[in-house]
């Protein structure tokens, strides 16, 4: 079987629609990870007995288990307890929760990086806890988070392909469906790979350049 250009062109629109779902899911997952990760990082940092440990365990447990198993667990267990969500929503939540554990570690590094004098100055000015976090600590912590964000976006973009296994109709799912319907896998699956690369490679080059620029400006 050799490459068929006509077939490839014919399936490209469907694949691009799949890619669009992949991109949307990645952005939605990123948003969840950013917010949830911040909450987890702050709770861990302020040392509430038991609660902080529980969230510490949450981070380690999520990072120590495969995304695909987490996706299966969410997809098959939740309906048993009456929570019925679409594959797309389930997939986005799984991605967001999974990456929140990684983002929490990035935030933690960012928060710990803030000079101790900043906390002391806030105390000396008798600034209440909330403004100290919101106006002083977090803006400085974000400096470290921003470059890492690009890396995690790219990784999440690639990982979202795993969600095809819980029937989310993203890029790989579309390619796989075309392949099994036509019994022609060469064009759809190769194009899926090319499309992933077409987004992730330029993005990775861009992020690397940004990191270099940030590193030299500091």
């Amino acid at each position: 079987m050799t490459w068929d250009n006509n077939f490839a062109l014919q399936i490209l629109p469907d694949l691009l629609r799949g890619l669009w779902i992949t991109i949307q899911a990645t952005f939605a997952g990123t948003a969840i990870a950013l917010v949830l990760g911040l909450v987890v990082a702050i709770i861990r940092y302020v040392h509430i007995p038991v609660v902080s440990q529980v969230f510490g365990f949450y981070v380690q447990f999520i990072r120590g288990t495969p995304l695909v198993v987490q996706a299966y667990a969410a997809f098959f267990i939740l309906p048993d307890y009456g929570v019925v969500l679409s594959p797309l929503v389930t997939g986005i939540i799984v991605l967001g929760v999974n990456y929140s554990a990684y983002m929490a570690e990035v935030y933690r590094a960012g928060i710990e990086d803030v000079d101790k004098g900043q906390w002391e100055a806030a105390t000396a000015l008798s600034l209440p806890k909330a403004p100290t976090w919101i106006r002083v600590i977090l803006p400085q912590a974000f400096r470290l988070v921003v470059p890492m964000l690009g890396n995690y976006w790219i990784q999440m973009f690639k990982d979202s392909a795993i969600l095809s296994l819980i029937t989310m109709t993203e890029l790989l799912f579309v390619g796989q469906t075309i392949g099994s319907n036509q019994y022609r896998y060469l064009e759809p699956l190769t194009l899926v790979g090319v499309l992933f690369l077409a987004i992730s490679y330029p993005a990775a080059v861009l992020v690397r350049r940004l990191e270099k620029g940030l590193a030299s400006s500091q």
Partner: peptide, 17 residues
């Protein structure tokens, strides 16, 4: 740059067919 699951599928489905 491509997902590991895409690579697995490529070798598993494309190579034989």
């Amino acid at each position: 740059g491509t997902s590991i699951i895409v690579q697995l599928f490529w070798v598993f489905f494309v190579l034989p067919t």
